[in-house]
């Protein structure tokens, strides 16, 4: 693939780069930069497209509800099990007692295309510092190159979302202070494989590509994270 073809593909669908696009980006810093810029542009486009939703939401819901005669409490009472059913049906679970946490982690990954970007450029120190501070952790440099850091909303809380570059490709790390686990959970689906391990007062999720080996990086992350007291 040459740079022109790369830009045509990355410029059309930056959030789902195929293997050839990623391979090219890994060997071409300028095109990797183009991909990052395009992802950034997409973030702005999404913000621009997300126009405020007016009262139509209430109006249309009432319309549907009046047709169905649904009671709002019933509506929500069954919602959780229905949504869980949809998600479970689409995933292949290796195992684990708290699948819903893994499902939520995977759902979150869909909103973070940086997870796919191979780069040697580290995240801005100030940004990383703020993310760690808000997450109540410190991170030792032994973890490796952190190329992306963001404070994400997850299950109603703000959690550090990091991407660490490894020899096997980019790996996403989510530090989940408020999600304690009794035992590690492993999971996999088409694009990702991941593990969530008990850590500090909560847990840490480590997610890589579908064929990623996560054992070493998980150990490295666990050793690198210092939990500050609440």
């Amino acid at each position: 693939m040459d740079c022109l073809e790369f830009r045509r593909l990355a410029g059309a669908d930056p959030q789902h780069p195929d293997a050839a696009v990623l391979e090219h980006a890994a060997g071409c810093p300028r095109c990797a930069g183009y991909l990052r810029q395009t992802l950034e542009l997409d973030r702005h486009i999404l913000a621009a497209l997300s126009v405020p939703v007016p009262l139509v939401a209430g109006r249309a819901k009432s319309a549907a509800a009046s047709v169905s005669g649904l009671d709002r409490r019933r509506w929500y009472a069954l919602a959780a099990s229905i949504v869980a059913g949809v998600l479970v049906g689409s995933l292949l679970w290796v195992g684990g007692p708290r699948n819903s946490l893994a499902q939520d982690v995977l759902a979150h990954m869909d909103h973070e295309p940086e997870a796919f970007v191979v780069t040697t450029t580290p995240a801005d120190d100030a940004v990383l510092g703020r993310v760690l501070e808000r997450g109540g952790i410190r991170l030792r440099p032994e973890v490796g190159t952190v190329s992306y850091a963001n404070s994400c909303r997850f299950r109603g809380r703000t959690v550090p979302h990091l991407v660490v570059q490894t020899d096997g490709g980019p790996v996403t790390v989510m530090v989940l202070r408020n999600e304690p686990l009794d035992a590690p959970v492993r999971f996999a689906e088409d694009r990702f494989t991941g593990t969530i391990v008990p850590a500090g007062p909560g847990s840490i999720a480590v997610i890589g590509g579908s064929d990623a080996e996560l054992e070493q990086i998980t150990e490295r992350v666990l050793a690198a994270v210092d939990w500050r007291q609440d």
């Binding site: 997300s50 126009v51 939401a57 649904l70 069954l78 949504v83």
Partner: peptide, 19 residues
């Protein structure tokens, strides 16, 4: 149950459908 499931999905999708 189908009514409930459908209403729930519409409820979730409605903001983006409006957009």
């Amino acid at each position: 149950d189908g009514e409930t499931a459908f209403a729930r999905l519409c409820d979730e999708l409605q903001p983006d459908l409006f957009r």
